[in-house]
Design a protein around this nucleic acid. Structure first.
Lengths: 132, 132
DNA sequence: ATGCACCCCGTGGCAGCTATAAGGTCAATG
DNA sequence: CATTGACCTTATAGCTGCCACGGGGTGCAT
């Protein structure tokens, strides 16, 4: 169909701010699009798909570098799927590590809150817990 | 005792890099210390306590701005402890929000990994899941 | 006196955007 | 035909929380 969207339309279609799109272009995550006679960026449907892919991956927490690697893999359909799998498992481990960290934090914070007995800062158990 | 530490010694005492200490000073989290005749920063025991406090709070994920607020409160022991409580509860909520987000991510990623049946990228379920 | 570890300051970089300024383009309206 | 307003262009700076680098000064031991 080659709808040829402007950057604003592409942004709406993918829930992405125009500045972010230009940023992705600048850092090479997305290729430089065609331009109109007035020097406006002009995007094809294919580009919409690519940006949607990027956004989904980012929403899953993949860093841009990994997104780049995933894009490269989708461009080489003959490579083994195991390479994709490896990247996703890496991200899964990363998420699990962060979950464990946050869970510890949550418990510590909850305990601090629970121990608060009111009064003034001078006898605050929370400040006490933070002090050496 | 007034041990009067150098910045490197303070760093070791608090597991903080010297650049970080200077950074805290520059952004006003920590006060400007005294200087020796050779213009070296010279830190008192009190300073060690303050930096330790900052580090503990940072390790609990408090943003610097909140650390600043907590420090202000410790400097005003007559203020109600409830103000401290409020900051900590805010941080607790923040952590809980992040935990929920990460948990959703973990499940999505785990499912993606589970669905992988090998083969090449062209029939990869993971790439499929990311594609529009 | 010379080597070495430490310190000084300023600047620039990291991720991943977001915002701002100063200007060009385009379609529609008066 | 001119002007409005919404959009687009670029370059640049800012955000958080540091870390690294470079070119110099200091302090102490040998």
């Amino acid at each position: 169909m080659r709808a040829n969207l402007s950057i604003g339309e592409l942004g709406k279609a993918t829930s992405t701010k125009t500045e972010t799109i230009r940023f992705y272009e600048k850092v090479g995550i997305l290729p430089e699009p065609a331009r109109t006679s007035g020097n406006y960026r002009s995007y094809s449907e294919e580009y919409v798909r690519r940006l949607t892919f990027v956004r989904k991956a980012r929403n899953l927490g993949f860093p841009l570098e990994t997104v780049r690697a995933l894009l490269d893999l989708t461009d080489q359909p003959d490579r083994p799927c195991a390479e994709v799998d490896k990247l996703v498992i890496g991200q899964l481990h990363e998420v699990e590590r962060k979950l464990a960290d946050l869970e510890r934090l949550r418990e510590e914070l909850a305990q601090m809150v629970q121990r608060c007995r009111g009064g003034s800062v001078s006898d605050c158990r929370i400040i006490e817990a933070l002090s050496p």
